[in-house]
Each structure stands twice: as structure tokens, then as C-alpha cells.
């Protein structure tokens, strides 16, 4: 019987991944590289003897055309070149630092509260309605209000990241705590574990893998928050870069900003997985065994 879900060796996975990326760039290049020439009629203003516009002439102008022309979309080569012209490292650094600080503030409050909510149903009943009201609000909705309350400096940006990620971090933690196998708690209690031991030796280690999985998602949510927060008042940051360059129809720079977010998220994700391996090594042993 075939194994389910079907898998392929790691080397094949890498090969298929590389082919997928190559296809993506090939399609992009096909869409944007000049493929044919087109004769276009352009109006050209003709100045009279006084230097003022006197008439217009129609000039036949041969232009190289692609399926999608700039400023709609630049070629991969032009987009790649643009990455070196727009001070990208400063923008990446600014956004990443904001994310990390905002994420840490959010997590340091949401995780203890989430565990407490998982353990105490009355507290859960008290806080849940507020979280339910906050959760559907997209981070961008907070931007105008926070600009008035906190200005447009770092406080405003961290506040947007915090409110945008707090509810998600809290819900993941509550869910992870509620999912802990009650038999584990019962067994530990029967073996004489005290409250503190139950919390530190049983509940936390059992809930941690699910908490960390949730926080990985929260970290990605933080990126949507920082891009919203950087719409206003930013000097540096990928959000500032994207919004400013959009005003100049500089689509190559906008794409570079977007691609940078993806790359940084991938790097952060890998770093998070490494941290997970350190914090919950048994989860990876279990996954490896299965």
C-alpha cells in the first residue's frame, strides 16, 4: 500500500522547488521582456518663433513592446538592479527591528494571559468577549487612531504591531493550553505533583509545541501590521518604501520591497524553527519517528 501522504526524497523536493522558481522567473521575463516592436503615433508639441506651442504633429514612433510594459511591471533584471539603488538594507533593518520588538511585547503579555485563561474558565469568560471584538479588526484600522494618540514615531508603529498580533497570540495560547491531554494532568496529580510542578513540568511542556506553532503564524501577522503602521511618518521601513515608491509609479522598487518581506519572513521562519528545535526537541523526535 502506498504511504499517505505521499512523499518524495529531499533531493527531488529541492529540484522541483528550483524548477518552480525558474518557471516563475521565466513567466515574468516572458511577460516583461521586449518581444515585438510597435509603431505608435505620438503627439509632439511644436513651438513657434515665440517659443510657445503653435501646433502639434503626429510622430510615428517605433517602440519595443512587451506583453506587460513598464510602469505596470519591470523585467526581472531591472527589478533586481533597483534593489541596489534604494537603500534596501536600512529599510529591512528598520522593519525587522520593529517586528521583533512588537512581537516580543505582544508575546510576553499574551502567553501568560493565554495560559491563565486556559486554566481559569472565569477569566476566560471575562476576557474572551473583548478579544472577540478586537480580533476581526485589521491592523490598518488602528493606524489613524494611533497616529493621533501616539504620534508617528516608533510608539505608534509598535502599538499597531501589538494590537494586530496580541489577539492572535492570545487565542493560539489559550487553544494550546486547552488541548493539553487531561490524562497527563490527572497522572501528575495522582503522583503528587503540586500546582507549581503541574504548571512548569506538565502543562507548559505539553502546551509549548502548539504555542510555538501559533507564534510562528503570529510573527507573519506582525509583518502585515508593520506595513500598515509604516504608511504614516516613516523615514525607513519596507512599508514606507512601498507606499512612497507607489506614489512615484516605481513598480520595480515596490516589488523589491514586497520580495524583501517574503525573504525576511522566510529567514525569520527558519530562525524560529531552529529555536523550536532547542525549546521542544521531543516534538521533532516524534515527527522524525513518524
Amino acid at each position: 500500500m502506498r504511504r499517505f501522504p505521499p512523499t518524495i526524497p529531499k533531493s527531488s523536493r529541492l529540484l522541483y522547488g528550483a524548477i518552480g522558481i525558474a518557471i516563475f522567473f521565466a513567466v515574468w521575463w516572458i511577460l516583461t521582456a521586449p518581444m515585438f516592436t510597435e509603431v505608435e503615433t505620438r503627439r509632439v508639441a511644436i513651438d513657434g518663433p515665440t517659443g510657445e506651442v503653435e501646433s502639434y504633429k503626429e510622430v510615428r514612433h517605433e517602440v519595443s513592446r512587451a506583453i506587460v510594459n513598464p510602469p505596470g511591471l519591470e523585467t526581472p533584471g531591472n527589478t533586481f538592479r533597483r534593489a541596489f539603488e534604494i537603500g534596501l538594507p536600512q529599510h529591512i533593518l528598520a522593519s525587522t527591528l520593529r517586528i521583533l520588538i512588537g512581537f516580543l511585547i505582544s508575546v510576553s503579555l499574551a502567553v501568560p494571559l493565554g495560559i491563565a485563561m486556559g486554566l481559569f474558565p472565569r477569566l476566560r469568560a471575562l476576557v474572551s468577549p473583548i478579544v472577540s471584538l478586537m480580533r476581526p479588526l485589521p491592523s490598518i484600522a488602528w493606524v489613524p487612531l494611533f497616529a493621533i494618540w501616539f504620534g508617528v514615531d516608533e510608539t505608534q508603529k509598535l502599538a499597531v504591531i501589538f494590537v494586530g498580533s496580541f489577539a492572535a497570540a492570545l487565542i493560539y495560547t489559550v487553544e494550546a493550553t486547552l488541548k493539553v491531554d487531561p490524562d497527563l494532568i490527572r497522572a501528575a496529580t495522582n503522583l503528587g505533583a503540586g500546582r507549581r510542578q503541574l504548571l512548569t513540568r506538565v502543562l507548559l511542556p505539553a502546551a509549548l509545541p502548539n504555542i510555538l506553532s501559533g507564534l510562528k503564524v503570529v510573527l507573519a501577522i506582525c509583518w502585515t501590521c508593520v506595513i500598515s503602521a509604516e504608511i504614516v511618518g516613516g523615514q525607513f521601513g519596507l512599508g514606507t518604501l512601498i507606499w512612497t515608491k507607489k506614489e512615484l509609479s516605481d513598480t520595480a522598487a515596490v516589488l523589491v520591497g514586497m520580495a524583501s518581506i517574503s525573504v525576511v519572513v522566510l529567514v525569520m521562519d527558519a530562525a524560529f524553527t531552529l529555536a523550536e528545535r532547542r525549546l521542544v526537541p521531543w516534538m521533532f523526535l516524534r515527527r522524525g519517528a513518524s
Binding site: 497616529a147 493621533i148 504620534g151 508617528v152 504614516v232 511618518g233 523615514q235
Partner: peptide
């Protein structure tokens, strides 16, 4: 100088706050 890029009424809010 440092230009703080903000739109519309936010300019007023920022200056009012002393930012």
C-alpha cells in the same frame, strides 16, 4: 531637517503632539 511623511489631518495631529 528630517521630513516626516504624513497625510492630510495627520500633519496637524503630529505638530499638535510636538512630534
Amino acid at each position: 531637517v528630517t521630513v516626516v511623511n504624513v497625510t492630510d489631518s495627520t500633519v496637524v495631529d503630529i505638530v499638535r503632539r510636538g512630534d
